[in-house]
């Protein structure tokens, strides 16, 4: 069981919402990963759908590239839609 691969688990909590990363777990194969995810991450009604993907298939950004990747967005406040005056009738924005 020590050689069971690691899986990333994504849970959709409600119809219409995205699957969101919930955590990771070990399992022998995809089928078992789904069952384990059901037992570990949906015990309190958290989900209606589960995705699993073996962690080794996730390509992650390199922490050293953080500056080049993310800093340029820092000083571009005009990308946030905060300069509009919203009409009163518009709710939930």
């Amino acid at each position: 069981m020590k050689d069971w691969p690691l899986w990333e688990v994504f849970i959709r909590s409600k119809q219409g919402l995205n699957h969101i990363h919930a955590g990771s777990l070990h399992a022998a194969d995809a089928e078992m990963a789904i069952e384990n995810a059901r037992d570990v991450y949906t015990r309190r009604n958290e989900g209606i759908s589960i995705w699993v993907v073996e962690s080794k298939h996730v390509k992650a950004s390199n922490p050293e590239d953080q500056g080049a990747l993310f800093d340029p967005a820092d000083n571009k406040i005009y990308r946030h839609p905060t300069f509009y005056v919203l009409p009163d009738e518009l709710k939930h924005m």
């Binding site: 069971w4 777990l25 399992a27 069952e35 037992d39 570990v40 015990r43």
Partner: peptide, 9 residues
Amino acid sequence: GPVLEQDIA
């Protein structure tokens, strides 16, 4: 349990 996940199961 033999592994955490099965312990919870």
